[in-house]
């Protein structure tokens, strides 16, 4: 048998010589704030950190971690409904303080819990409701005059401020309830709870797979951006080339996801999947769950009754 080995091309001469690089005497270049590459890498690492931290909390032996996730999901819906009916801000504030206490009992650091709820969403809600606090939108008793228009004093009204406070507190309380559930329940148990409450299996399967592959694709994005960073000399500019890189990264990621989705489907088919996924379910309600259910129902009724008796 004749053996044919492909002829190897000679190594180009420039590859055998040293390259002009930065002076070894130290930093001589200008410094700039992080580019989109660094920001993407930081964002990717930050997301992973958050998920790992959330998982650590869900694994703690706290109060809510012991409760059946189906019950937690159902009680969230009941409490959200009760909160939506409340029109008295004092009731909302008391209920919110209760969520902070439950968070502490579930081993969620109080500062983290409060920051997570208050840092962004209520602030954005606040921006949205600010116009409603003005006498132009909500006429009423002016508590802080701002300007005069056609001889009429305009400013913040007590009615407007009360309405805005009510909305912001209600949003904060609702988000606190959702954060309590998501921080004390691992994603796997949350998905199982959705199935247990009758959410269609295919829907839960798709959500579960999407969550699982986000991390894989996140890893791909990190690899691509790191390789770009490794080959970048100097500072990254936000120019046409940068935009081209971002779009080509998105394209490459789409192509990877497509190939991966084909392989995943093959892996599922190989193990007998025929379009109707069957999944494992393993929950049993305990006496503690029953107590929790009663407490939640009593709490929801108390919230509604207290609001009714106190009025606006």
């Amino acid at each position: 048998m004749t053996v044919t080995v492909p002829a190897e091309a000679a190594t180009p001469s420039w590859l055998l010589q040293g390259e002009f690089a930065m002076c070894p005497c130290g930093c001589i270049g200008k410094r700039k704030k992080g580019s989109f590459v660094e920001k993407t890498l930081d964002g990717s690492a930050g997301l992973m950190r958050q998920v790992m931290f959330g998982q650590d909390i869900a694994d703690q032996p706290g109060l809510l971690q012991r409760i059946d996730p189906r019950l937690k999901l159902a009680s969230l819906l009941v409490l959200l409904f009760a909160v939506a009916l409340v029109r008295n801000i004092v009731v909302l504030v008391v209920a919110y303080l209760l969520t902070v206490a439950v968070a502490a009992a579930s081993r969620i650091p109080a500062a983290f819990f409060i920051k997570r709820v208050w840092l962004f969403i209520p602030i954005f809600t606040g921006i949205v409701v600010i116009p409603a606090t003005l006498s132009i939108i909500t006429p009423g008793d002016i508590v802080l005059p701002l300007w005069t228009w056609h001889g009429t004093t305009q400013g913040f009204t007590s009615q407007g401020l009360t309405a805005a406070g009510l909305i912001v507190t209600r949003v904060a309380l609702s988000i606190s309830l959702v954060v309590l559930l998501t921080l004390t329940t691992s994603w796997v148990r949350l998905l199982a709870a959705m199935r247990g409450l009758g959410v269609p299996r295919v829907f839960v399967l798709i959500v579960g797979m999407a969550y699982r592959y986000i991390f894989l694709l996140l890893g791909s994005v990190t690899d691509m951006y790191e390789s770009r960073k490794a080959r970048t000399v100097g500072t990254v500019t936000h120019d046409k080339a940068a935009r081209g890189f971002v779009t080509s990264t998105a394209g490459a990621l789409l192509s990877k996801s497509h190939t991966l989705s084909e392989e995943v489907h093959q892996a599922m088919t190989s193990r007998g999947y025929r379009g109707d996924a069957k999944t494992l379910q393993q929950f049993a309600l305990t006496r503690g769950d029953a107590v929790y259910a009663v407490v939640v129902i009593v709490l929801a009724v108390t919230i509604v009754l207290a609001d009714h008796s106190l009025g606006r």
């Binding site: 994603w187 579960g208 996924a277």
Partner: peptide, 21 residues
């Protein structure tokens, strides 16, 4: 990565037998 698609190891391993009934 293509083969391990379920949200947890237990569910992953249980997938095949459950599809088989």
């Amino acid at each position: 990565d293509a083969q391990v698609f379920s949200p947890s190891v237990r569910e992953e391993i249980a997938f095949g037998p459950l599809q088989m009934g």
